[in-house]
Design a protein around this nucleic acid. Structure first.
Lengths: 132, 132
DNA sequence: CGGAATCCGCGCGGATACTG
DNA sequence: CAGTATCCGCGCGGATTCCG
């Protein structure tokens, strides 16, 4: 029987919509830069290449697992380059790629909005919570 | 003894850094707009007020729980307004506030970068995966 | 119609230990 | 130094059920 229940039809609509959303470039970008560590790593690399341990120190809160994972994913996406110097001990340098650099104005825009308006958001939040 | 182990010192540094990060306006904004449903709701409201059920239909993949939760948080932050008409049955209209409207150019900027560069990201990803 | 409340799976990410 | 591997808690979010 091709007859489907309402819940089955809803489920499929949701799946199709999910697929549509996943394919949306804006969503993909948002997924990328919304990551807590991604923005911190990109910002850290904005003023020049850094070694792994440099990044680890500058982004004090990050675990090695997340730092490595973040760098790997950024490298995979062509936003960050990874250069290994096979000395002893090993030396690895990370840097923004040209593509990665084009993201910086966008991050600046985000930072600008945040600095201009987040206090209004905070005020709205306080008022809302206070007024109950 | 005030003497602390290395791990204790590291843990406190991480905590302080986490607090610092949490207070950063840029991070707060990013946390806000990175939410999957937030951007979809804001975009849906960009071309005028909508009823709850309108939003529910336009954003087909969202569960009721998440739609309500998203709208509540946006209202709390002063980005979206909520107007109840106590008819029978009840009618609720949501709209962007002036503050919420100022976010739209930023979202447009994000969309622009995505449409200009996400294919390069996809290509880099494919090349990376293919070259192994 | 527009929610609130509850249950629950699962994946993100932190902590720890080990390696070339 | 620059990772890899593993374990595990916890919170996000989906599904379901009930309410004014």
């Amino acid at each position: 029987m091709a007859t489907r229940t309402a819940s089955e039809r809803r489920a499929e609509a949701a799946r199709r919509y999910d697929a549509y959303i996943a394919s949306c470039p804006t969503r993909q970008l948002l997924d990328r830069i919304s990551d807590k560590w991604v923005t911190l790593v990109l910002s850290a690399l904005a003023d020049g290449p850094k070694r792994y341990s440099d990044l680890s120190r500058r982004i004090a809160g990050v675990s090695q697992k997340m730092l490595t994972q973040t760098l790997r994913s950024l490298e995979r996406d062509g936003l960050v380059s990874r250069a290994v110097t096979p000395s002893v001990p090993v030396r690895v340098d990370y840097a923004l790629t040209p593509l990665g650099s084009t993201l910086m104005p966008l991050l600046a825009h985000i930072k600008q909005w945040a600095e201009q308006h987040m206090d209004e958001v905070a005020a709205a939040r306080a008022g809302h919570d206070g007024a109950g």
